[in-house]
Design a protein around this nucleic acid. Structure first.
Lengths: 188, 188
DNA sequence: TTACGCATGTAAGAGGTTACATGATTTT
DNA sequence: AAAATCATGTAACCTCTTACATGCGTAA
Protein backbone atom coordinates (compact mmCIF):
# COMPACT_ATOMS: atom_id res chain seq x y z
CA UNK A 1 0.00 0.00 0.00
CA UNK A 2 1.54 3.22 -1.14
CA UNK A 3 1.43 6.08 1.30
CA UNK A 4 -0.20 9.14 -0.11
CA UNK A 5 1.23 12.48 0.78
CA UNK A 6 -1.96 14.24 1.74
CA UNK A 7 -0.33 17.56 2.46
CA UNK A 8 0.70 17.90 -1.16
CA UNK A 9 -2.80 18.15 -2.53
CA UNK A 10 -4.10 20.34 0.23
CA UNK A 11 -1.36 22.82 -0.65
CA UNK A 12 -1.89 22.51 -4.40
CA UNK A 13 -5.59 23.01 -3.89
CA UNK A 14 -5.13 26.12 -1.79
CA UNK A 15 -2.63 27.60 -4.24
CA UNK A 16 -5.03 26.89 -7.10
CA UNK A 17 -7.39 29.41 -5.54
CA UNK A 18 -4.84 32.22 -5.81
CA UNK A 19 -1.33 33.18 -4.67
CA UNK A 20 -0.51 32.11 -1.13
CA UNK A 21 2.66 32.20 0.94
CA UNK A 22 3.48 29.46 3.43
CA UNK A 23 2.04 31.65 6.12
CA UNK A 24 -1.11 32.17 4.09
CA UNK A 25 -1.51 28.43 3.55
CA UNK A 26 -1.43 27.87 7.29
CA UNK A 27 -3.93 30.68 7.82
CA UNK A 28 -6.22 29.23 5.19
CA UNK A 29 -6.18 25.87 6.94
CA UNK A 30 -6.97 27.45 10.27
CA UNK A 31 -9.62 29.87 9.09
CA UNK A 32 -11.35 27.99 6.30
CA UNK A 33 -10.59 24.28 6.38
CA UNK A 34 -10.19 23.94 10.14
CA UNK A 35 -13.15 21.60 10.72
CA UNK A 36 -11.87 18.99 8.29
CA UNK A 37 -8.20 19.73 7.59
CA UNK A 38 -5.04 21.04 9.22
CA UNK A 39 -1.38 21.53 8.37
CA UNK A 40 1.67 22.62 10.36
CA UNK A 41 4.54 24.87 9.28
CA UNK A 42 6.92 21.94 9.52
CA UNK A 43 4.97 20.33 6.69
CA UNK A 44 4.18 23.39 4.62
CA UNK A 45 7.48 25.18 4.14
CA UNK A 46 9.64 22.23 3.10
CA UNK A 47 6.85 21.02 0.82
CA UNK A 48 6.62 24.38 -0.94
CA UNK A 49 10.29 24.08 -1.88
CA UNK A 50 9.82 20.53 -3.07
CA UNK A 51 6.80 21.37 -5.17
CA UNK A 52 8.60 24.31 -6.71
CA UNK A 53 11.60 22.17 -7.64
CA UNK A 54 9.19 19.66 -9.18
CA UNK A 55 7.64 22.40 -11.27
CA UNK A 56 4.17 21.99 -9.79
CA UNK A 57 4.15 25.49 -8.30
CA UNK A 58 6.07 28.70 -8.90
CA UNK A 59 6.60 32.05 -7.20
CA UNK A 60 3.89 34.46 -8.18
CA UNK A 61 5.48 37.80 -7.36
CA UNK A 62 8.98 38.66 -8.49
CA UNK A 63 11.21 38.81 -5.44
CA UNK A 64 12.15 42.44 -6.13
CA UNK A 65 8.75 43.83 -5.14
CA UNK A 66 9.45 46.17 -2.29
CA UNK A 67 7.75 46.15 1.05
CA UNK A 68 6.25 42.69 0.94
CA UNK A 69 8.46 40.01 2.36
CA UNK A 70 6.00 37.28 1.58
CA UNK A 71 6.87 34.77 -1.10
CA UNK A 72 3.59 33.77 -2.66
CA UNK A 73 3.20 30.73 -4.88
CA UNK A 74 0.73 29.68 -7.55
CA UNK A 75 0.22 26.35 -9.26
CA UNK A 76 1.68 25.75 -12.70
CA UNK A 77 -0.10 23.91 -15.50
CA UNK A 78 1.65 20.71 -14.42
CA UNK A 79 0.46 21.30 -10.87
CA UNK A 80 -3.10 21.82 -11.99
CA UNK A 81 -2.96 18.57 -13.93
CA UNK A 82 -1.67 16.73 -10.88
CA UNK A 83 -4.38 18.22 -8.73
CA UNK A 84 -7.11 17.30 -11.20
CA UNK A 85 -5.84 13.72 -11.35
CA UNK A 86 -5.93 13.51 -7.56
CA UNK A 87 -9.52 14.75 -7.48
CA UNK A 88 -10.50 11.76 -9.59
CA UNK A 89 -8.72 9.17 -7.49
CA UNK A 90 -10.67 7.45 -4.73
CA UNK A 91 -10.31 9.12 -1.35
CA UNK A 92 -8.91 7.19 1.61
CA UNK A 93 -10.35 7.41 5.08
CA UNK A 94 -8.36 8.68 7.99
CA UNK A 95 -7.51 5.93 10.46
CA UNK A 96 -9.91 6.61 13.31
CA UNK A 97 -8.67 7.81 16.70
CA UNK A 98 -11.52 9.22 18.71
CA UNK A 99 -10.13 9.66 22.19
CA UNK A 100 -13.44 10.70 23.68
CA UNK A 101 -15.11 7.49 22.57
CA UNK A 102 -12.15 5.47 23.80
CA UNK A 103 -12.63 6.99 27.24
CA UNK A 104 -16.37 6.47 27.13
CA UNK A 105 -15.88 2.85 26.12
CA UNK A 106 -13.83 2.12 29.26
CA UNK A 107 -15.76 4.45 31.53
CA UNK A 108 -17.16 1.75 33.75
CA UNK A 109 -13.80 1.87 35.53
CA UNK A 110 -14.39 5.48 36.53
CA UNK A 111 -18.16 5.62 36.79
CA UNK A 112 -20.87 7.71 35.15
CA UNK A 113 -19.95 11.07 36.62
CA UNK A 114 -16.52 11.08 35.02
CA UNK A 115 -18.05 10.12 31.70
CA UNK A 116 -20.68 12.83 32.04
CA UNK A 117 -18.02 15.46 32.56
CA UNK A 118 -16.09 14.33 29.49
CA UNK A 119 -19.18 14.28 27.33
CA UNK A 120 -20.16 17.70 28.56
CA UNK A 121 -16.77 19.05 27.48
CA UNK A 122 -17.36 17.48 24.10
CA UNK A 123 -20.76 19.17 23.96
CA UNK A 124 -19.21 22.55 24.68
CA UNK A 125 -16.62 22.10 21.95
CA UNK A 126 -19.27 21.08 19.44
CA UNK A 127 -21.39 24.05 20.40
CA UNK A 128 -18.54 26.40 19.58
CA UNK A 129 -17.82 24.62 16.33
CA UNK A 130 -21.44 24.89 15.34
CA UNK A 131 -21.42 28.63 15.84
CA UNK A 132 -18.42 29.00 13.55
CA UNK A 133 -19.96 26.77 10.90
CA UNK A 134 -23.22 28.70 10.92
CA UNK A 135 -21.35 31.90 10.23
CA UNK A 136 -19.46 30.23 7.41
CA UNK A 137 -22.73 28.95 6.01
CA UNK A 138 -24.22 32.45 5.95
CA UNK A 139 -21.16 33.87 4.21
CA UNK A 140 -21.09 31.18 1.55
CA UNK A 141 -24.79 31.56 0.83
CA UNK A 142 -24.19 35.12 -0.34
CA UNK A 143 -21.61 33.94 -2.87
CA UNK A 144 -23.63 31.08 -4.33
CA UNK A 145 -24.78 33.00 -7.41
CA UNK A 146 -21.50 34.51 -8.49
CA UNK A 147 -18.91 31.97 -7.32
CA UNK A 148 -18.85 28.51 -8.94
CA UNK A 149 -16.69 27.23 -6.06
CA UNK A 150 -19.32 28.16 -3.50
CA UNK A 151 -21.58 25.15 -3.99
CA UNK A 152 -18.72 22.83 -3.04
CA UNK A 153 -17.75 24.91 -0.04
CA UNK A 154 -21.39 24.85 1.00
CA UNK A 155 -21.41 21.08 0.85
CA UNK A 156 -18.44 20.76 3.19
CA UNK A 157 -19.94 23.17 5.70
CA UNK A 158 -23.25 21.39 5.44
CA UNK A 159 -21.71 18.06 6.40
CA UNK A 160 -19.86 19.76 9.24
CA UNK A 161 -23.11 21.12 10.58
CA UNK A 162 -24.96 17.84 10.27
CA UNK A 163 -22.20 16.02 12.12
CA UNK A 164 -22.00 18.56 14.89
CA UNK A 165 -25.79 18.48 15.25
CA UNK A 166 -25.67 14.71 15.53
CA UNK A 167 -22.94 14.95 18.15
CA UNK A 168 -24.86 17.51 20.16
CA UNK A 169 -28.01 15.41 20.15
CA UNK A 170 -25.96 12.42 21.26
CA UNK A 171 -24.34 14.40 24.06
CA UNK A 172 -27.69 15.48 25.45
CA UNK A 173 -29.13 11.97 25.45
CA UNK A 174 -25.94 10.33 26.64
CA UNK A 175 -25.72 12.66 29.63
CA UNK A 176 -29.36 12.03 30.51
CA UNK A 177 -28.89 8.30 30.24
CA UNK A 178 -25.80 8.39 32.44
CA UNK A 179 -27.47 10.62 35.00
CA UNK A 180 -30.31 8.15 35.31
CA UNK A 181 -27.77 5.35 35.69
CA UNK A 182 -25.91 7.33 38.33
CA UNK A 183 -29.00 7.95 40.45
CA UNK A 184 -30.13 4.34 40.09
CA UNK A 185 -26.75 3.25 41.33
CA UNK A 186 -26.72 5.57 44.34
CA UNK A 187 -30.27 4.52 45.31
CA UNK A 188 -29.46 0.84 45.34
CA UNK B 1 2.54 20.59 24.65
CA UNK B 2 3.33 17.05 25.67
CA UNK B 3 2.47 14.37 23.21
CA UNK B 4 0.14 11.81 24.65
CA UNK B 5 0.83 8.22 23.81
CA UNK B 6 -2.67 7.23 22.88
CA UNK B 7 -1.82 3.63 22.15
CA UNK B 8 -0.82 3.09 25.75
CA UNK B 9 -4.28 3.67 27.17
CA UNK B 10 -6.06 1.80 24.43
CA UNK B 11 -3.95 -1.23 25.30
CA UNK B 12 -4.36 -0.78 29.06
CA UNK B 13 -8.10 -0.44 28.58
CA UNK B 14 -8.37 -3.57 26.50
CA UNK B 15 -6.24 -5.57 28.95
CA UNK B 16 -8.38 -4.29 31.81
CA UNK B 17 -11.27 -6.24 30.30
CA UNK B 18 -9.42 -9.55 30.60
CA UNK B 19 -6.23 -11.28 29.45
CA UNK B 20 -5.22 -10.44 25.90
CA UNK B 21 -2.20 -11.27 23.79
CA UNK B 22 -0.80 -8.82 21.27
CA UNK B 23 -2.73 -10.64 18.63
CA UNK B 24 -5.90 -10.40 20.70
CA UNK B 25 -5.42 -6.67 21.18
CA UNK B 26 -5.24 -6.18 17.43
CA UNK B 27 -8.32 -8.34 16.94
CA UNK B 28 -10.18 -6.38 19.56
CA UNK B 29 -9.41 -3.14 17.77
CA UNK B 30 -10.57 -4.51 14.46
CA UNK B 31 -13.69 -6.26 15.68
CA UNK B 32 -14.92 -4.03 18.47
CA UNK B 33 -13.35 -0.58 18.36
CA UNK B 34 -12.92 -0.37 14.58
CA UNK B 35 -15.28 2.57 14.01
CA UNK B 36 -13.41 4.84 16.42
CA UNK B 37 -9.99 3.30 17.08
CA UNK B 38 -7.23 1.29 15.44
CA UNK B 39 -3.77 -0.02 16.27
CA UNK B 40 -1.06 -1.79 14.28
CA UNK B 41 1.23 -4.63 15.35
CA UNK B 42 4.20 -2.33 15.05
CA UNK B 43 2.71 -0.31 17.89
CA UNK B 44 1.25 -3.08 19.99
CA UNK B 45 4.07 -5.59 20.47
CA UNK B 46 6.85 -3.18 21.46
CA UNK B 47 4.44 -1.35 23.75
CA UNK B 48 3.46 -4.55 25.55
CA UNK B 49 7.11 -5.09 26.45
CA UNK B 50 7.49 -1.53 27.61
CA UNK B 51 4.37 -1.62 29.74
CA UNK B 52 5.48 -4.91 31.30
CA UNK B 53 8.88 -3.48 32.19
CA UNK B 54 7.12 -0.48 33.73
CA UNK B 55 5.02 -2.79 35.86
CA UNK B 56 1.71 -1.61 34.40
CA UNK B 57 0.88 -5.01 32.94
CA UNK B 58 2.02 -8.58 33.57
CA UNK B 59 1.78 -11.95 31.89
CA UNK B 60 -1.41 -13.66 32.93
CA UNK B 61 -0.54 -17.27 32.16
CA UNK B 62 2.72 -18.83 33.26
CA UNK B 63 4.78 -19.53 30.17
CA UNK B 64 4.95 -23.26 30.94
CA UNK B 65 1.30 -23.90 30.11
CA UNK B 66 1.36 -26.37 27.29
CA UNK B 67 -0.47 -26.03 24.02
CA UNK B 68 -1.17 -22.32 24.02
CA UNK B 69 1.56 -20.24 22.45
CA UNK B 70 -0.16 -16.99 23.21
CA UNK B 71 1.32 -14.72 25.83
CA UNK B 72 -1.61 -12.99 27.42
CA UNK B 73 -1.27 -9.92 29.59
CA UNK B 74 -3.40 -8.33 32.28
CA UNK B 75 -3.13 -4.94 33.95
CA UNK B 76 -1.52 -4.67 37.37
CA UNK B 77 -2.82 -2.47 40.18
CA UNK B 78 -0.41 0.25 39.05
CA UNK B 79 -1.74 -0.07 35.51
CA UNK B 80 -5.32 0.22 36.66
CA UNK B 81 -4.44 3.36 38.57
CA UNK B 82 -2.79 4.84 35.49
CA UNK B 83 -5.78 3.98 33.38
CA UNK B 84 -8.22 5.51 35.86
CA UNK B 85 -6.19 8.72 35.97
CA UNK B 86 -6.26 8.91 32.18
CA UNK B 87 -10.03 8.50 32.14
CA UNK B 88 -10.32 11.63 34.24
CA UNK B 89 -8.01 13.76 32.13
CA UNK B 90 -9.55 15.87 29.37
CA UNK B 91 -9.60 14.15 26.00
CA UNK B 92 -7.85 15.69 23.03
CA UNK B 93 -9.35 15.81 19.57
CA UNK B 94 -7.72 14.11 16.65
CA UNK B 95 -6.29 16.59 14.18
CA UNK B 96 -8.82 16.47 11.34
CA UNK B 97 -7.89 15.04 7.93
CA UNK B 98 -11.02 14.31 5.96
CA UNK B 99 -9.80 13.60 2.46
CA UNK B 100 -13.27 13.32 1.00
CA UNK B 101 -14.17 16.83 2.14
CA UNK B 102 -10.84 18.13 0.89
CA UNK B 103 -11.68 16.79 -2.55
CA UNK B 104 -15.20 18.14 -2.41
CA UNK B 105 -13.91 21.54 -1.39
CA UNK B 106 -11.77 21.80 -4.53
CA UNK B 107 -14.19 19.97 -6.81
CA UNK B 108 -14.96 22.95 -9.02
CA UNK B 109 -11.74 22.07 -10.81
CA UNK B 110 -13.12 18.69 -11.82
CA UNK B 111 -16.83 19.39 -12.06
CA UNK B 112 -19.93 17.96 -10.40
CA UNK B 113 -19.78 14.47 -11.88
CA UNK B 114 -16.45 13.68 -10.31
CA UNK B 115 -17.70 14.95 -6.96
CA UNK B 116 -20.86 12.90 -7.31
CA UNK B 117 -18.86 9.74 -7.83
CA UNK B 118 -16.70 10.41 -4.80
CA UNK B 119 -19.68 11.13 -2.59
CA UNK B 120 -21.41 8.01 -3.82
CA UNK B 121 -18.40 5.94 -2.77
CA UNK B 122 -18.59 7.59 0.63
CA UNK B 123 -22.26 6.69 0.81
CA UNK B 124 -21.52 3.05 0.06
CA UNK B 125 -18.86 2.91 2.78
CA UNK B 126 -21.21 4.49 5.32
CA UNK B 127 -23.93 2.06 4.38
CA UNK B 128 -21.66 -0.86 5.18
CA UNK B 129 -20.53 0.70 8.42
CA UNK B 130 -24.12 1.24 9.44
CA UNK B 131 -24.93 -2.41 8.96
CA UNK B 132 -22.06 -3.44 11.23
CA UNK B 133 -23.06 -0.92 13.87
CA UNK B 134 -26.67 -2.07 13.89
CA UNK B 135 -25.54 -5.62 14.58
CA UNK B 136 -23.30 -4.39 17.37
CA UNK B 137 -26.21 -2.41 18.80
CA UNK B 138 -28.42 -5.49 18.88
CA UNK B 139 -25.74 -7.56 20.61
CA UNK B 140 -25.06 -4.95 23.26
CA UNK B 141 -28.74 -4.49 24.00
CA UNK B 142 -28.93 -8.10 25.20
CA UNK B 143 -26.14 -7.51 27.70
CA UNK B 144 -27.44 -4.27 29.15
CA UNK B 145 -28.98 -5.87 32.25
CA UNK B 146 -26.09 -8.08 33.30
CA UNK B 147 -23.04 -6.18 32.14
CA UNK B 148 -22.19 -2.82 33.73
CA UNK B 149 -19.83 -2.05 30.83
CA UNK B 150 -22.62 -2.39 28.28
CA UNK B 151 -24.15 1.05 28.79
CA UNK B 152 -20.84 2.67 27.79
CA UNK B 153 -20.40 0.41 24.81
CA UNK B 154 -23.93 1.28 23.79
CA UNK B 155 -23.11 4.97 23.92
CA UNK B 156 -20.17 4.61 21.56
CA UNK B 157 -22.19 2.58 19.07
CA UNK B 158 -25.02 5.06 19.35
CA UNK B 159 -22.79 7.95 18.36
CA UNK B 160 -21.38 5.90 15.51
CA UNK B 161 -24.87 5.29 14.19
CA UNK B 162 -25.94 8.89 14.52
CA UNK B 163 -22.87 10.06 12.65
CA UNK B 164 -23.27 7.54 9.88
CA UNK B 165 -26.94 8.47 9.55
CA UNK B 166 -25.98 12.11 9.26
CA UNK B 167 -23.39 11.28 6.63
CA UNK B 168 -25.87 9.21 4.64
CA UNK B 169 -28.47 11.96 4.66
CA UNK B 170 -25.82 14.42 3.55
CA UNK B 171 -24.70 12.14 0.72
CA UNK B 172 -28.22 11.85 -0.65
CA UNK B 173 -28.85 15.58 -0.62
CA UNK B 174 -25.38 16.47 -1.84
CA UNK B 175 -25.72 14.17 -4.82
CA UNK B 176 -29.13 15.59 -5.68
CA UNK B 177 -27.84 19.12 -5.41
CA UNK B 178 -24.87 18.38 -7.63
CA UNK B 179 -27.02 16.59 -10.19
CA UNK B 180 -29.25 19.62 -10.48
CA UNK B 181 -26.16 21.80 -10.86
CA UNK B 182 -24.79 19.46 -13.54
CA UNK B 183 -27.96 19.57 -15.63
CA UNK B 184 -28.27 23.35 -15.24
CA UNK B 185 -24.72 23.64 -16.48
CA UNK B 186 -25.23 21.40 -19.51
CA UNK B 187 -28.44 23.25 -20.44
CA UNK B 188 -26.84 26.67 -20.45
C1' DT C 1 14.32 51.39 21.64
C1' DT C 2 11.98 47.97 23.29
C1' DA C 3 8.69 44.89 22.46
C1' DC C 4 5.50 42.54 19.83
C1' DG C 5 3.48 40.42 15.83
C1' DC C 6 4.62 38.88 11.07
C1' DA C 7 6.93 35.52 8.30
C1' DT C 8 10.08 31.87 7.04
C1' DG C 9 12.17 28.27 8.28
C1' DT C 10 14.77 23.92 10.60
C1' DA C 11 16.20 20.10 13.91
C1' DA C 12 14.95 16.63 16.77
C1' DG C 13 12.37 13.18 17.65
C1' DA C 14 7.75 11.13 18.60
C1' DG C 15 4.41 8.44 16.47
C1' DG C 16 2.95 5.27 13.19
C1' DT C 17 2.67 2.01 8.98
C1' DT C 18 4.31 -1.39 6.06
C1' DA C 19 6.60 -5.21 4.65
C1' DC C 20 9.00 -8.85 5.83
C1' DA C 21 10.77 -12.89 8.77
C1' DT C 22 9.83 -16.80 11.46
C1' DG C 23 7.79 -20.79 13.17
C1' DA C 24 3.76 -23.28 15.03
C1' DT C 25 -0.79 -25.15 14.36
C1' DT C 26 -4.72 -26.27 11.75
C1' DT C 27 -7.14 -27.24 7.61
C1' DT C 28 -7.55 -29.24 3.00
C1' DA D 1 2.03 -32.98 2.06
C1' DA D 2 0.72 -28.52 0.97
C1' DA D 3 -1.64 -24.47 2.05
C1' DA D 4 -3.72 -21.46 5.07
C1' DT D 5 -4.02 -19.33 9.37
C1' DC D 6 -2.29 -18.22 13.96
C1' DA D 7 1.02 -15.59 16.47
C1' DT D 8 5.00 -12.81 17.60
C1' DG D 9 7.93 -9.79 16.26
C1' DT D 10 11.34 -6.29 13.89
C1' DA D 11 13.57 -2.98 10.61
C1' DA D 12 13.03 0.49 7.63
C1' DC D 13 10.98 4.28 6.71
C1' DC D 14 7.57 7.94 6.43
C1' DT D 15 4.79 11.49 8.49
C1' DC D 16 4.09 15.01 11.43
C1' DT D 17 4.50 17.97 15.59
C1' DT D 18 6.96 20.71 18.61
C1' DA D 19 10.16 23.84 19.88
C1' DC D 20 13.34 26.82 18.67
C1' DA D 21 16.02 30.29 15.66
C1' DT D 22 16.01 34.28 12.91
C1' DG D 23 15.11 38.72 11.12
C1' DC D 24 11.92 42.23 9.55
C1' DG D 25 8.32 45.72 10.27
C1' DT D 26 5.49 48.30 13.28
C1' DA D 27 3.35 49.89 17.51
C1' DA D 28 4.10 51.58 22.41
Amino acid sequence: MERTNRTKFAVLGILSMGPHSGYDVKKFCEEVLAYFWHESYGQIYPLLHTLESEGLIRKSRPTDTTKDRRVAYVVTAAGKKDLAAWLERPFSEQAPRNELLLKVFFSNLAGPNVAIRQIDDYRAAQKMLQKVLKEAQANIEKELDQNPDAIYWQLTVDLGLRLSNARLAWCREAIQKLQRAATRKSNS
